[in-house]
Every structure is written in structure tokens, then in C-alpha cells.
Design a protein around this nucleic acid. Structure first.
Lengths: 226, 226
DNA sequence: AACGTGAATTGACCTCGATCAAACAATTCT
DNA sequence: AGAATTGTTTGATCGAGGTCAATTCACGTT
């Protein structure tokens, strides 16, 4: 795997990401110092459970799926990350061992930030420590949200919740394009693809139109009630 | 609700907790400055989803259950905390709003650490920031572990996994006492109490003996294979 | 535009765990 | 000790969602 330096576009994506938004230029530069970029094909493995990892990652383009393996080989998605999102930060605090697997979905470019460096910088710059805490908190929240939804909602309700999460507050009718294959959405929601399909067709009765990756909502309230 | 100052025993519990273990005395004292203690009866609510929270909490005695509410009133446990564990730290990073509910299980004493103070101290003491990051990471991991187990394991497998988590590595046969009612364990594992009961009786065939709260394992390998 | 491949849907079936009801066990209270 | 309350187990039933197989559809390629 060939590693490259950041080009100016890569840098723009990183600096525009949520993690960097409140950081000073000095702090950001210090973090990006020594960052490298790798390109990946669909299904490439970025890291694996229990193996050493000495970077924090950021998606520059494409998608990354983070998942755990069951001993029977089945996979459970923990999260899916898109452009501008950092991931893999947990290993930093757990002896540089990954606690999950990460895999590119479709061809993707990934930045790697040295975690030793980042840890050191977090001691010098309180803002960096703060940004890291917010990152950890967001990711913790994501996992808790998932857990609660898995336990409280049925498949169609989870899908409705996902759709509503993409709907601007005011509008009662709107549409958007899924950012990835239904395949991937199913994994993210903890469903078999067939179950996602059936969930969509259950929602059709509540004014949801699905055509390819395009989702149309005609009655927000109906979805919320579901 | 009467709030008290920390007594020396309370202080000992706090300082012995995982969060404080690597902190200097100066840092610890600064955090505990202004900490208060409250006593709670079974079922007392400590905080509620979406309500303002300006403390980080620590269990001094008893148990606390953190859970989310579904709109139909059903509850999903996110975590259960015991003596010496901090919780409720997420609100610190999310505009001081709780993202879940917390409730005492049995009568409990709880310490409250002022979160404004803690945030300020995290800027001064890198060790405190580090301890907070580790706390956030652990809690994020807990949620991810739960999520993965929910998605990958059946009820008896989850129970087996819970039991094995209490089994020292070497031993093939050992026993321990559940730290809470089966009731609570069921919630923590995302099961109805009946399902937990049935899971235990399924494990009986693999050398697990359950008598009241006492659990005995006679064949570690059998459990691992389950 | 036709083709071909992989994705998505649909149907049939089956398993797991939730729910309800009732029996039973273990606490706590008087 | 006996009563009352609460926790736990067991049985029976039901529904949600997983799995497998067979189409159908969408999309990129030629």
C-alpha cells in the first residue's frame, strides 16, 4: 500500500471536518504534520480487531465501515463513516490495539494521523484535548443511540428514524438520496438486506416513496407516529 | 433532597475509583473541591433525558441504571454502574443536557462533581483531560460491546459471555455472586427477565449452576464454545 | 439500445425472544 | 411464625426478523 503526503484538497477536507473546526491553525498544523494518505479499493481492510494500530483515521473520500466479528464469522456494524469523519481513535486509549475491524466500502482515500503525536499534542493544547473528548463523546453517543434503537424500535421504526434524521425540521415533505447502497444501510441499522427492503415497503403505506437510492417523504407526521 | 459534603469514606471510594487512579493528589483535590453527596431510595431518578445536568456523578454505594425511554414508555438500559464508577459525563460535552435517564437501583449514595469546574480543570491539568478521555473511551467501548453482542449473540451466549467476564483467566471451575438482582442483569443484557431465566436453564446443560444469586461454573471451555 | 452483473425485492419457512398468565420461591413486615 | 409483597421460573402463544431460494430491477459497460 502506497502512502502519500496530504495534497491541498486532502488538507481542506480535514480542516473542514468537525474535529478540526474549533482548533487554532497552529494546533491543526501540528496534528497534520506527518499525516499520510492511502488509497483503497472496495473491501480493503484498514485495520483488524486486536491488532496494533498507531493512527487515527479520517475519511477523505469514500466510505468506511467499522464492525465486529462474531466467532461464527458473522459481522455486526458498529458505525459507517463518510467524508470528513475521524475514526479509530479508541485504540489511542487502549494500548494501541483496535477493538474492531475497519473496511473500505467502495474505493476510498484515507488520512492517517499519528496517534503518539496526537496524544502528545493533547497534553500541550487544551483545545486538542477538548476536541478529542468531543469526538469520543459523539462516538459513544452514536453507539448508545444505536443500542437504544435496536432495543426499542422495530425495523420499520428504525428506518423511519433514519429517514427523519435526514429531514430538515420545518418541512413536512422532502426527498434525499441515500449516501450509500441499501446494503450498507441495512448493516448500519442492524438488519438483513431483506428486512430493510420489507421495512421500506411497510413505510410506503405512510407516504414514503423509494426509487433506487432516492427517498421521498410526503407526510412527516405519519413517519413520526410510526 | 438533602445534599451533604463528602465524608472521609466517600472520599476514599472516589480516590480509589478508576477515574482517579492516575491523578495527582492536587488534581484530585481540585476536582473534589465542592463535590456533594446525595442519598437515594430505590427508583429515585437522578436525571432525565433532555433535562439540564451540571454534574458528573459517581456511585459511592448502591447501583445506578442508565437507560433510554421509547415513546411507548418501554425502557432500554444503556449501562449499570456500581460503586466507584463515574457516569453522566456525556452531558458535559453536549450543552449540559442529559441524553439518557439515570435511576437508583436500591438505596444508593451518589457523589456529584461540578462539571464546569471539571471542564476548567481539564484545561489546566493534562492528566485530568487524559482521565476524562479514558473514561469516555471506556464508556464508548461498553456501548459498542453491548451493540455487537446484541447483534451477534443469542440470549444464552450473551449470558455466557457475561459469566466469562467474571471468570479469572486461569481457572476452569469457579463461582461468584451476581452483583445485583437477575431483574437488573436481564435489563443490562437487553432481555426480558423470562428470557434470562431460560438462558440460565439452557446453560445448566453446559455446567452452569444457578442458586439464587450464586453462579457456579464447572467447565469453562464448554461455556466458551456455547 | 442491448447486455450482463450485482443489488434489491419477494415469498416461504423457521427460530428466537417478547408477552401474558400462572405457579413458585424468597424477602420483608407485622 | 405467618402473611404479604416482590422476585423468579415455567408454560403457552405470538410476532419480528433471519435465512434460503427465486425473481426482478438498476446500473455500468460495451
Amino acid at each position: 500500500m502506497k502512502t502519500l503526503r496530504l495534497n491541498s484538497n486532502d488538507k481542506a477536507v480535514l480542516l473542514g471536518s468537525r474535529f478540526f473546526e474549533k482548533l487554532s491553525a497552529a494546533a491543526s498544523d501540528a496534528i497534520l504534520e506527518g499525516a499520510v494518505v492511502t488509497n483503497h479499493e472496495e473491501h480493503d481492510i484498514l485495520f483488524q480487531q486486536d491488532e496494533p494500530v498507531d493512527s487515527v483515521f479520517c475519511v477523505l473520500s469514500g466510505l468506511v465501515r467499522v464492525y465486529r466479528l462474531g466467532k461464527d464469522g458473522r459481522e455486526a456494524d458498529i458505525a459507517v463513516f463518510t467524508k470528513g469523519e475521524l475514526f479509530g481513535e479508541n485504540a489511542m486509549f487502549l494500548g494501541n490495539r483496535a477493538t474492531a475491524n475497519a473496511q473500505a466500502i467502495g474505493s476510498s482515500t484515507i488520512a492517517r494521523l499519528d496517534s503518539r503525536n496526537l496524544r502528545k499534542l493533547a497534553e500541550q493544547y487544551p483545545d486538542i484535548a477538548q476536541a478529542l473528548m468531543e469526538l469520543l463523546c459523539r462516538h459513544g453517543q452514536m453507539a448508545e443511540d444505536c443500542l437504544a434503537e435496536d432495543r426499542l424500535l422495530t425495523a420499520p421504526q428504525r428506518v423511519a428514524s433514519y429517514i427523519l434524521g435526514h429531514c430538515p425540521d420545518g418541512s413536512t415533505t422532502f426527498s434525499f438520496r441515500l449516501p450509500f447502497q441499501k446494503n450498507v444501510l441495512a448493516g448500519k441499522l442492524g438488519l438483513a438486506p431483506e428486512a430493510l427492503s420489507r421495512a421500506f415497503s411497510a413505510l410506503r403505506r405512510s407516504g414514503v416513496t423509494v426509487k433506487g437510492r432516492m427517498i421521498e417523504i410526503h407526510d412527516r407526521q405519519a413517519l413520526e407516529r410510526f
